[in-house]
Computed example of a mutant assay.
Amino acid sequence: MATPDDDYDSPWKSAVLRYFPEFMAFYFPQAHAAIDWSRPYAFLDQELAQLVRDGELGRRRLDKLVRLATVAGAEQWVLLHLEVQGRRESAFAERIFCYNYRVYDRYRRPVASLVLLADQAARWRPGSFSYRLFGCRVGIDFPVVKLMDYADRIEQLLCDANPFALLTAAHLLTRQTKGQAHRRRAAKWRLTKLLYQRQWDRQRIIDLYSVIDWLMRLPPDMEARLWRGIVQMERREAMPYITYAERIGRKIGLQEGLQEGRQEGRQEGLQEGLQLGQRQMVELLARQLNKRFGTLPPQLGERLVVADSEQLGRWAMALLDAASLDEVFGDK
């Protein structure tokens, strides 16, 4: 049985924003040790967007730019350019060189470029770019970490307290179970149980599960089976962390659908949602139901997951005038 298409870049970027110090400690410990974490750091998203436009770099996009301080204290602040790359790209090293220079040219501060590679090409390890002309050498060398290098250490990763060890294991198990839905469901269930056993705070569990859920996609019937297990586990452990709306509300396309709904009005927003793929339809409809009627009961969440697009469309139209969940789902 085939599994849905996999997505690797977006979940990592979300996790990096939320748990940046842990990210650096796990993948780039030398850089982590040189950063003064007692001082605030800032992601320069707006400045980054302007920098890319000014550089006329087209569709190429720098992942993250962070302003931070070092323990050496020689500079008031420096810049860290971080790239998370999920697929092989022939001109990747040259792109890193261009971004690094553009950042330096804009801020006139030291810039370090760090790269995390999430692809499957074992021999592809771009770590430098340079050229020589008339005795002049220009170039860059940058640290690279490759996720597939952890493939023989999955059990060790599962015992590591750093959240990115668990996410690295999730990434590797997603790769290893591509096209094998039953194996993936078993691996995802194991990771979910481990997540609950870590005794982390509720928000961290929700955030990290959302990444695991995003990475390890399953066919609808297996998603429903897994969700039943999570509900039972939460009841048994008295840990009601991941509600159905929170779970699916963090998937691909939700923010786009919600933004369209807010701008165009409830009915037009629903119609736009219906034009998205079936997966996005489920996400949008679940959030709308949750907003109107409160947290969805697990059994209704399961019905959304396994429904076809025609049924989802009927429920979406019923939501426009319904006064209760019973009226939406036709139970009365």
Rank of each mutant, 00 (worst) to 15 (best):
F164H: 05
R202K: 09
Q30R: 14
L320I: 07
L68W: 09
A170G: 14
Y131W: 15
D149T: 12
L304M: 00
V16R: 07
G265K: 13
M233D: 10
W124L: 04
F129V: 08
D7K: 13
A25H: 13
L17A: 14
G179A: 05
Y104I: 03
L285P: 00
L167I: 14
R217C: 05
L80M: 11
Q180K: 09
N100R: 09
M216A: 15
S38H: 13
T243N: 13
D207M: 06
R60C: 14
V111D: 09
E83I: 07
L218I: 03
R225Y: 03
L133C: 06
S128Y: 08
E260A: 11
K146A: 06
R204Q: 14
S210T: 11
Y241W: 13
A91M: 09
R292C: 13
R247K: 12
V328T: 03
L80Q: 02
V66T: 04
A187Q: 14
A161I: 06
G277P: 07
Y131S: 12
R109M: 06
A245D: 01
F293E: 10
V328R: 03
Y244S: 00
Q85S: 10
L117V: 02
L296Y: 01
L289C: 08
I242Y: 02
A165N: 14
Q280S: 12
Q259H: 12
R287Y: 11
P126F: 11
G249E: 01
Q278F: 00
L147T: 09
P297D: 04
Y99T: 13
D119Y: 08
R106A: 11
D45G: 10
L79I: 01
P40F: 02
F43D: 01
P298E: 11
T295Y: 03
I140N: 06
A2F: 04
W200K: 09
R287N: 03
R87K: 11
A318F: 05
Q85A: 09
K251V: 01
W37M: 03
V138A: 06
A151H: 02
T70C: 03
R184W: 07
G261K: 14
V231N: 02
T192V: 06
Q267P: 01
W214T: 10
A186H: 05
L133G: 04
Q259N: 11
E75H: 08
G179N: 06
R88H: 07
I252P: 05
I248T: 01
L79M: 12
L319A: 05
R39E: 14
T3H: 07
A33E: 14
K178G: 10
G269H: 01
V144Y: 03
A238F: 12
V66I: 11
I252T: 15
T192H: 06
Q232K: 09
F97N: 06
A187C: 14
R109S: 10
Y99S: 07
L57Q: 04
L320A: 04
